[in-house]
Simulated scan of single mutants.
Amino acid sequence: MTFEPEQLGQSSQELASMLRDLRQRAGLSGVRLAARCNMSQSKVSRIENGKVRPSLVDVEQILRALKVSSSVVGEVSALARRANTEWRNLRELRRKGLGTRQAELKSLEASSAHMRYFLLSMVTGLLATPEYVRASLAHSPVDTSKAIAGKLERQAVLYDTSKRFTFILTEQAIRWPVVYPLALAEQIDRLSSLSHLPNVDIAVIPLGTPTPRNPLNTFTIYDTSLVTIETSAGSLVLRDGRDIRGYLNEFSGYEDSSLHGEAARAKLAEWSATCRS
């Protein structure tokens, strides 16, 4: 099933109205529908008023309880998929201001307990040195001063020990020459230093390491509620539980293939020394 990018993430209110209309046509009260779905009546009410975005599983339970036709199931399921998937176009992000994007990420990090980052091609801003941050945004056609400040400000969250961070970086992500060799050595040393934080696990996958899947994109998982996938044209946001479970399983496979702890720090030291030589 495919959708036009502009359709994604814009169907929540339409989905809420359709589910409410289907219930009313079936002659069911919110209380009776909730009982059939094994949901609370308040959750049904929040879904129908657009205050809660239902997962695809929620929608399937409601449609089964309402005993709608297969054609209606297909139509509503497609709408639910669009509502749970959002496309962030890079041009639109630049128009709004890259600093706004940093504020959104800061809010996500503040509301999450365990964040998992799979980094395929670059070091993420949370782990980056100031020089690396500036270089990573050097080719942007818009003013990046607020974005740079926002990236550096966000790094304070790493020291919040109530949160847990797991970073998996490929060798390509670590050694890609975003900055000159000596600055890259400093960046690699920073990764090693941050790996000593009690709530931060920095794992590395050296080139040639067999992995259960061939990674295609950088992605971040926030608890078990949201996944963001980065592409060169923008980012995709997934909220459906089945999509999230799929990415959690993929992440777990890369985690099993990674070097952790002292083994990771030894490899980082080797790469840093190569940069300095």
Rank of each mutant, 00 (worst) to 15 (best):
I148S: 00
A149V: 05
G150P: 00
L152I: 04
E153M: 04
Q155N: 06
Q155H: 04
V157L: 01
S162M: 07
S162C: 09
K163D: 00
R164T: 10
F165K: 05
T166Y: 04
F167L: 05
E171V: 02
Q172E: 12
I174K: 04
P177N: 03
P177C: 02
V179I: 03
Y180Q: 14
L182Y: 06
E186G: 02
Q187R: 02
R190N: 02
L191H: 01
L191Y: 00
L194I: 05
L194A: 07
L197P: 03
P198I: 06
D201S: 10
I202D: 01
I202H: 03
I205P: 06
L207Q: 13
G208D: 15
G208N: 07
T211R: 10
R213K: 12
N214H: 14
N214W: 13
L216K: 15
T218Y: 05
F219Y: 15
T224R: 15
S225G: 13
L226A: 03
V227D: 11
T228K: 08
T228W: 03
I229V: 15
E230A: 08
T231R: 09
S232C: 10
S235F: 10
L236R: 12
L238R: 02
G241N: 14
G246I: 01
E250M: 12
F251I: 04
G253T: 04
G253L: 11
Y254M: 15
S257H: 09
S257N: 07
S257R: 03
S258E: 00
S258I: 00
S258C: 07
